[in-house]
């Protein structure tokens, strides 16, 4: 891969769902670029097409027009180099934590020992040591999302897509998970595109923040976040942070 080549590009990306008596225009001519190892957050009003955008980037949906370029090549269908964390927790209740995390490797035909070894590494990374044989029913919401993140990373994808991963968590857990995600992101060389409805979360995490308009979604604001790293929770209380948040807030409308 060329060093300067974007990890993801969309060109004129539009999505129209066939819908009962007509059609539903979810995304309209979205153009964006994500650089390798960049952390991009997407915010926008609910129903504006954020999930649709992520599914298009993952190759789970075929665009009505326009295209997605993955590492310079047109994307046709899901790729193994992409990890996805879904909006709803999508763990398999009949599998233990370690079995859930090693699923991607299992589907690739990786040998049992190797699978376990790599899943245990991820369990360590997301801070779930000691819970490897627990089943999802016995996990808290935050722990379940850690498992989902670990599963999305276990096959060492180049790109991690997260769809409101902390949407169902309480405020405190949410803050902790955000810092955890930053730590995980710096431990792994991975490009991240994350959808969230929290402006401060988006500002705290991302290098660049995209604001989508009301449906049909289009990029209304593409804001590089001028905050230094490492990002700390305390930054959210600075005046600079408040100004940025206001700018984003105004763009959402």
């Amino acid at each position: 891969m060329n060093a300067s080549e974007p990890a993801l590009v969309t060109r004129n990306l539009s999505m129209v769902y066939p819908n009962g008596d007509g059609s539903l225009h979810a995304l309209h001519q979205v153009d964006l670029q994500v650089q390798p190892q960049e952390f991009v957050c997407v915010v926008g009003p609910s129903g504006c097409g954020k999930t649709t955008l992520l599914h298009l980037l993952a190759g789970l949906l075929t665009p009505s027009s326009g295209e997605v370029l993955f590492e310079g090549k047109p994307l046709r269908g899901p790729r193994r180099h992409i990890g996805f964390v879904f909006q709803q927790t999508s763990l398999m209740p009949w599998r233990s934590v370690v079995e859930n995390i090693s699923l991607p490797l299992e589907l690739q035909g990786v040998a049992e020992d190797e699978r376990r070894h790599r899943a245990m590494e991820l369990i360590e990374l997301v801070g779930l040591a000691g819970f490897e044989n627990t089943h999802p029913h016995n996990l808290s919401g935050g722990m379940a999302q850690r498992v989902a993140i670990a599963r999305a990373l276990v096959h060492e994808p180049n790109i991690l897509l997260l769809d409101e991963p902390f949407g169902a968590l309480d405020a405190l857990t949410r803050e902790r998970m955000a810092s955890e995600l930053l730590r995980i992101w710096s431990a792994r060389t991975v490009t991240v595109v994350m959808v969230t409805h929290s402006i401060s979360e988006a500002l705290l995490l991302s290098d660049r923040l995209l604001v989508l308009s009301e449906r049909p979604g289009r990029v209304r604001l593409d804001l590089p976040v001028p905050l230094s790293r490492p990002r700390l929770l305390e930054m959210t209380y600075t005046p600079r942070f408040g100004e940025l948040a206001q700018e984003v807030r105004a763009a959402i409308g």
Partner: peptide, 20 residues
């Protein structure tokens, strides 16, 4: 979501049947 998950991981039809 679990079907989407299997699809995103490029599971074959048989894998989706047996494992999901």
């Amino acid at each position: 979501e679990l079907h989407d998950l299997m699809r995103s991981l490029r599971a074959t039809r048989w894998q989706t049947f047996v494992k999901l």
